[in-house]
């Protein structure tokens, strides 16, 4: 990222972290799970398009979580629909340039 943080920004960040320190680690765990799941689904999708049940089988994650991640990735432009397979929609990964 180009922009550099000023001293005021750093002070604000420090204050924010203090005020919202994650004492029992709930957020920490949430973010770790989130990243792990997202990575697994991304890897599965990189191997080829799939439906939510297929991605579930490949990743072993809970099926509703898989749907949620695919939905999120679709919203932010890293996944798109690729036809249907029976009662399920197939999703495919969109490779980002430079990534």
């Amino acid at each position: 990222m180009p922009a550099k943080l000023t001293e005021a920004h750093r002070q604000a960040l420090k204050l924010f972290r203090e005020q919202h320190s994650d004492l029992d680690g709930t957020l920490k765990k949430y973010v770790a799970d989130f990243r792990h799941e997202r990575k697994q689904i991304t890897e599965a999708l990189r191997k080829g398009a799939g439906t939510v049940p297929e991605l579930t089988r490949q990743t072993g994650l809970p099926v509703d979580q898989v749907l949620w991640h695919v939905t999120a990735m679709r919203k932010y432009g890293t996944v798109q629909e690729a036809g249907a397979d029976g009662d399920y929609v197939k999703y495919e990964f969109i490779e980002q340039n430079g990534k």
Binding site: M1, A3, H9, L15, Y30
Partner: peptide
């Protein structure tokens, strides 16, 4: 509740509008 305080938004904001304090 979900912000980890990474500061990425602060760096990305072109109009310097993020006020974490």
């Amino acid at each position: 509740e979900y912000c980890i305080g990474c500061g990425a938004c602060v760096r990305a904001c072109a109009s310097d509008a993020i006020r974490l304090d």
